[in-house]
């Protein structure tokens, strides 16, 4: 029974990671990209806890997971704030539109 749970946890980690990576590659909306990052973050939290649960050091794993959650939430918060500002300043959230906008002509990069 307990082994079953570990297997389920590992499956969840792999599944969430895969979905997140797929999202990062295919989604073009900045908000959706942040959402994909959140999904990968959940995979990371689960991975740490599953590992700790297997090795019997659940308390240490939990403290690590707390750090992951903090960092992940901050990424979401700041990413969303930047997205809001992007929408305000450039009127778009589309990665392709934005990257074209920020493309600097190569001459400007040449430096002295």
């Amino acid at each position: 029974m307990i082994i079953d749970m570990y297997a389920a946890g590992i499956a969840a980690v792999f599944g969430l990671l895969g979905i997140g990576l797929y999202g990062l590659m295919t989604l073009r909306n900045l908000i959706k990209v942040i959402l994909s990052l959140q999904i990968i973050g959940k995979a990371a939290v689960l991975a740490v806890v599953v590992a700790g649960s297997i090795s019997g050091e659940i308390a240490i794993a939990q403290s690590m997971a707390a750090s992951v959650i903090v960092a992940d939430t901050l990424v979401a918060v700041i990413g969303l704030a930047l997205a809001v500002q992007m929408q305000r300043c450039h009127g778009s959230l589309d990665l392709r539109t934005l990257s074209m906008k920020f493309h600097t002509p190569p001459e400007a990069e040449n430096g002295g």
Partner: peptide, 14 residues
């Protein structure tokens, strides 16, 4: 799932 794995506190935080 976290709760079932024994990580009660993190489950609540999550």
């Amino acid at each position: 799932l976290l709760y079932m794995l024994g990580a009660h506190e993190i489950a609540v935080i999550e």
